[in-house]
């Protein structure tokens, strides 16, 4: 039994470690977010530095997986969560997030540069993008899903059961085609090279040349233009309009720093934060920074029509669309 005791001991040792600095002199604000936000090349470090300049506090980002993982973690922790703010949910997760009853309303006022009007008072948007198929510029892209289905082009998409862009595409087709969605998917079946677990895998396959197009964002080419000085990537504009992903932040009712949390949400829509996001998160800022968009963004395509399903309706539509997707692609 010696080893069993040893195993238990490691747990106990960790248990006696000092509790996180809830009683420290400087107040600490804990923000749960997705993984790529906190990476040293992501927006996290710059946002943290900028906010700490004014707040007199210690901002602590905790990164975990993606938006869906964030929400699952929050549900597991429940009211005991140490998080004050959750940053990185998107419009398709808002309904489920509100269902937890863990979030509270926040007064955030900003002059949003969103294609739609923002009315939600619990969550504040901080950046957004259009889903789109990204391709190499030597290809003449189709202009509709139907044209894509009729073509020989190969695409890689993400699984809506494990990834938020995958879910976005599901909602996009459903919103654009309604009852016709299943037949659109049936038509696309022979174009789909494969379905991946997440965005990274799909984008990696596309860059490897495994597919002609990949589901990503209209802002994706901006990365290649700005960071790599490579203008060989472009996003295809579809006549059906483009489904949007709006990334939002909200604060928790159980927070021990409610004012600081509200300050942070307001900071996220301020010029300081918004000017950081385009070239670190590679999305459009929710509020236009005073300096405008960085050079390179002007080259991006601009869809004429934005699509978004009301967040309250997402769960029901998602289930129906998922059934259709599975049926069409499992044949």
């Amino acid at each position: 039994m010696k080893y069993l005791a040893l195993g238990a001991a490691t747990f106990l040792i960790a248990q006696t470690a000092p509790p996180s600095a809830a009683y420290a002199e400087t107040p600490e604000l804990t923000v749960y977010t997705y993984d790529s936000f906190v990476a040293e090349w992501g927006p996290g470090p710059q946002i943290e530095a900028a906010f700490e300049e004014t707040c007199g506090c210690d901002l602590k980002f905790v990164g975990m997986g993606d938006g869906a993982a964030l929400l699952a973690r929050l549900k597991l922790e429940g009211a005991r969560s140490e998080a004050d703010v959750v940053l990185g949910l998107d419009t398709s997760l808002i309904a489920a997030a509100k269902d937890t009853g863990l979030f509270t309303e926040t007064q955030v006022s900003a002059d949003y540069a969103l294609p739609i009007e923002w009315t939600d008072s619990t969550f504040a948007p901080y950046d957004w993008g259009y889903f789109a198929f990204v391709h190499n510029t030597d290809l003449t892209p189709p202009a509709t899903f139907k044209a894509l289905a009729a073509s020989d082009l190969k695409i890689v998409i993400q699984d809506p059961r494990s990834s938020t862009p995958g879910l976005g595409l599901l909602m996009w087709v459903k919103d654009a085609y309604g009852d016709e969605a299943e037949s659109i998917w049936a038509g696309l079946a022979d174009n789909i090279v494969t379905v991946t677990k997440g965005w990274s895998e799909a984008y990696g396959l596309f860059l490897e040349g495994e597919a002609d197009m990949v589901l990503s964002y209209t802002t994706s080419p901006a990365y290649h233009i700005i960071a790599e000085e490579d203008d060989s990537k472009a996003a295809a504009v579809f006549d059906e309009g483009h489904y949007m992903q709006i990334e939002v932040a909200g604060r928790l009712a159980g927070s021990d720093q409610p004012e600081l949390a509200a300050d942070f949400l307001n900071f996220m829509v301020s010029d300081a934060a918004q000017s950081i996001l385009p070239t670190t998160n590679w999305m459009y800022p929710a509020v236009m920074p005073s300096g405008g968009l960085p050079e390179g963004f002007e080259a991006l395509v601009k869809p004429e029509k934005a699509r978004l399903v009301d967040s309250a309706l997402v769960p029901a539509i998602r289930d129906e669309a998922l059934e259709e997707w599975l049926a069409a692609l499992s044949r």
């Binding site: 699984d159 494990s162 079946a189 789909i192 090279v193 494969t194 379905v195 991946t196 677990k197 895998e201 396959l205 997707w325 599975l326 692609l329 499992s330």
Partner: peptide, 10 residues
């Protein structure tokens, strides 16, 4: 991930 990616779909 292997099964999904190389399996070609759902």
């Amino acid at each position: 991930a292997v099964a999904l990616t190389l399996g070609g779909g759902p």
